[in-house]
Simulated scan of single mutants.
Amino acid sequence: MTQEPPNLPPTSWAVLGLLSFGQELSGYDLKKWADWSLKFFYWSPSYSQIYGELKRLEKAGYAVSRVELTESTRGKRVYAITDEGRAAVSRWARDAPVEPPVLKHGVMLRAWLGHLMEPERLREVIEQHREYADRMSRLAEVDAEGAAEVAEWAYPELVLRWSKRYYEAERDLARQMLDDLEELARRPPPKPEGGEHARLKK
Rank of each mutant, 00 (worst) to 15 (best):
M136S: 03
R199F: 10
H197A: 14
T11C: 11
V67I: 04
Q128F: 08
Y28W: 14
R94T: 14
V64A: 00
Y62N: 02
Y79S: 06
A154P: 04
E183K: 03
V98P: 09
S20A: 13
D180Q: 10
Q49H: 03
P9R: 10
P10I: 06
H129V: 00
E145P: 05
E145I: 07
K164Q: 15
D180A: 10
P156N: 11
V78T: 05
R121P: 09
V64I: 07
G61M: 03
S44F: 09
F21V: 11
Y167E: 02
A148M: 07
R171F: 07
M1N: 13
L103E: 04
Q49K: 04
A185W: 10
A198I: 05
R86H: 14
Y167R: 09
W33D: 15
W43C: 04
I126C: 03
D180H: 13
L200T: 07
R135S: 12
Q128M: 10
E152Q: 12
M108F: 06
E120K: 15
P10R: 15
G61F: 00
E131F: 10
T82C: 02
G22W: 05
S163Q: 12
G61W: 00
Y166S: 06
G75W: 06
E124H: 05
V64T: 01
L38G: 15
L8Y: 04
H105L: 06
A154T: 10
P45N: 04
G75M: 02
L38N: 15
D179W: 05
V64R: 03
G85M: 02
E196K: 15
R161W: 14
A140R: 12
E4T: 14
T70G: 03
A60P: 06
A148P: 01
R94E: 12
L200F: 12
Y62A: 00
S37K: 14
A63C: 04
I126A: 08
L158P: 07
V89N: 02
A144N: 11
S48Q: 05
A111Y: 02
E145N: 03
K55A: 08
L18N: 10
P101L: 04
K31A: 10
G195K: 12
Y166L: 15
E131G: 11
E157T: 13
R123L: 06
S12D: 11
E127A: 13
D83T: 12
A174H: 01
F40K: 09
D180C: 03
P188F: 11
R74P: 07
I50T: 09
V125Y: 05
K104I: 00
R175C: 06
V15K: 10
M117L: 13
E182P: 05
G85C: 01
D83G: 13
W112A: 01
R187A: 13
N7G: 09
R66N: 06
L25K: 11
L200C: 04
T82V: 04
P190W: 15
W13P: 09
V107C: 03
S90G: 08
E24Q: 10
S26L: 00
Q49T: 10
G27W: 01
R123Y: 08
A87Q: 01
P100C: 02
H115E: 14
L139V: 09
P100N: 12
